[in-house]
Design a protein around this nucleic acid. Structure first.
Lengths: 340, 340
DNA sequence: ATTAGAAATACAATCGATTGTATTTCTAAT
DNA sequence: ATTAGAAATACAATCGATTGTATTTCTAAT
């Protein structure tokens, strides 16, 4: 286990009485080495138990074939599906993936950016933390590192591309679905309104109300971090409002918290209050009544983000133009929203 | 974004007309540099936008301050909680964490081992894939890399330590609970029996039956990969057995599949068939009836595994003795197991 | 047998840090 | 003012690869 028994190309070179540059070229399958020598080198490398040192190689070539992914929290089903998509595409292109969690903390996000730069990853996929207001901490990486692509949570920064789902449309569809099912007094659970994504979702809610001539009331719009506990707390607050017959929560987790509370309080879903969530979280199909929600193409978004980033890495600095890709979403109608 | 504008310690040295070794020592806060010079260097470093190159540093010092984590699948709640625990402890010790998914594939696991060795991570936390039968692919890392600690899925290999939960006891408790609630004909859903963890769980089931003088019947023990779909398939098979009044599934996912199928078929849980799972998956508390299950200290296991590995890394080769830590589990009694 | 041109291999510098040793500078005691 | 010893800094080698250029070896045409 001690480090002194590391085999290097020089050990191979010495054993075969050739130069280490030839060994290096052979191991990289260069056409400048004869087949015969390649075979000798490969055999000796195997016999000695040679394992390439990527640190040295990456230092010399100034690339790591690695992309960094910053994710708010990997335990969220939505994000772990995105990660699978990212890895799937990266894997096929021969890139490694380093996954880091910001845990929605700006300080951690900042520290992660430094670590990824110090380790010279070739590019970064970023979903900013909920605390992130300024993007200045991305500048060092953009000047000394490589491209950054935002996924899920879009940001308008320098010439960084974004790939997101159509939050506005999903929200609009969800709200309109409640209205078409007879709801008139619809509470909206919002995330932090500093986050562009939640601004878009709110706009979808507001516009759907407007289209159907329902007045928007600010006290029907409640912000939180959308955890299950916050869902419970907001549901409690909701029941104090004069009249409520529908709830649209901008994520499933808070919707589920609310449904648990409502069930406890003897409020019937959907008959008293119809509920729609957002995310198509696995629990949404298991809870009773099953939760109507918005499905997002998470895996595909991961794949697309990954290949977009790798394309930009390969292009190099020049010619990378800012792109914005918006993926379509789907309303999944279940039992929580259909009044009998 | 181009790489030619990388600032190195030599740029700082040149700007201040001092030697790069002094710059290096200053940046590492060595006592061999005067405070006055340190201040000048730090200021200049900041002014030039210097960012340390970890590749070079790691190459020279022959350590990366990074541990590798191989996990079957990060999207599983159980594993993402473990990862959070691992990161929590590593973070406090100043270590970075690289997370890799094997997706239960032996080939991927093998490839990941090579990549982690090539990148010279200081140690590895490993939960082997379900396909992994031989551990020979770990040998290169053990000889040229660093220590490996197994978590969750224990393995007996060289002097690698393991940290697991008490699968035997959990399984025993779960089975006994069903028996004490009146079950006599208990079906058992097993994972692949090549995996030590599932051997332990099976033994718990078998021993609990024996303790209560219930004959073990091999046709009541059904193996699968424990996916939700396999749970459905096995439930179907289960209903063909002459008599069944209880089901113990060695994970929640398969139990949930089974419960969905039973509900479909009009079989009452718990009255016709009482069900107990394993994992305390978030869905288990939401499904109706709520699922009795075994809670595992996942986050804590991650923390312990991480600090055990880091301790071994710091100790170095000599003096690392094989440890086996087994964490206690807890039976969480809900509605699916209590016949009325 | 000679030789031009291609093929194969060797030489040497380099990526950006770290670190043991040598040298210079400073401090304080005489 | 001198000087011993400590403090601060410089020198030079090194980690393990890669790569442009120089040299050697081979091939095939004369």
């Amino acid at each position: 286990m001690k480090k002194n028994d590391q085999i290097t190309i020089h050990d191979i070179a010495r054993a075969l009485e050739i130069d280490s540059s030839t060994v290096s070229r052979a191991l990289n399958n260069s056409s400048r080495v004869s087949e015969k020598t390649k075979k000798r080198i490969l055999e000796k490398a195997h016999a000695l138990g040679y394992q390439r040192n990527s640190l040295a190689s990456n230092l010399r070539t100034n690339k790591t074939n690695t992309i960094g992914v910053i994710v708010p929290r990997i335990s969220r089903n939505f994000f772990s599906n995105i990660i699978s998509g990212i890895e799937d595409a990266a894997y096929q292109e021969g890139y490694n993936v380093v996954i880091c969690q910001s845990l929605e903390s700006f300080d951690r996000e900042k520290k992660i950016m430094e670590t990824l730069l110090a380790n010279r990853v070739d590019g970064i996929l970023l979903s900013t933390s909920m605390e992130t207001l300024s993007l200045d901490h991305l500048k060092p990486y953009l000047t000394h590192g490589g491209p950054i692509v935002f996924y899920d949570r879009p940001c308008d920064f320098e010439n960084c591309s974004s790939i997101t789902i159509n939050d506005y449309k999903g929200s609009f569809k969800a709200t309109e679905h409640l209205i078409l099912n007879g709801c008139k007094d619809i509470v909206y659970f919002s995330g932090p309104e500093t986050v562009a994504l939640y601004q878009n979702r709110k706009k979808g809610y507001v516009d759907a109300l407007a289209k159907h001539n329902i007045t928007y009331r600010s006290d029907y719009c409640m912000s939180s971090n959308l955890s299950e506990n916050e869902g419970i707390r907001l549901a409690e607050q909701m029941l104090k409002l004069p009249q409520v017959d529908g709830l649209f929560s901008s994520n499933d987790t808070a919707a589920i918290g609310a449904m648990k509370y409502l069930k406890n309080q003897g409020v019937s879903v959907p008959n008293d209050i119809a509920v729609v969530g957002f995310n198509n979280h696995p629990i949404s199909s298991v809870i009773e009544p099953s939760l109507t929600t918005i499905n997002q193409p998470d895996f595909i978004m991961g794949q697309l983000a990954s290949s977009m980033l790798i394309r930009q890495i390969k292009q190099g600095d020049i010619g990378v133009s800012k792109e914005t890709e918006i993926l379509d979403v789907e309303l999944i109608i279940r039992n929580s929203s259909q009044k009998l």
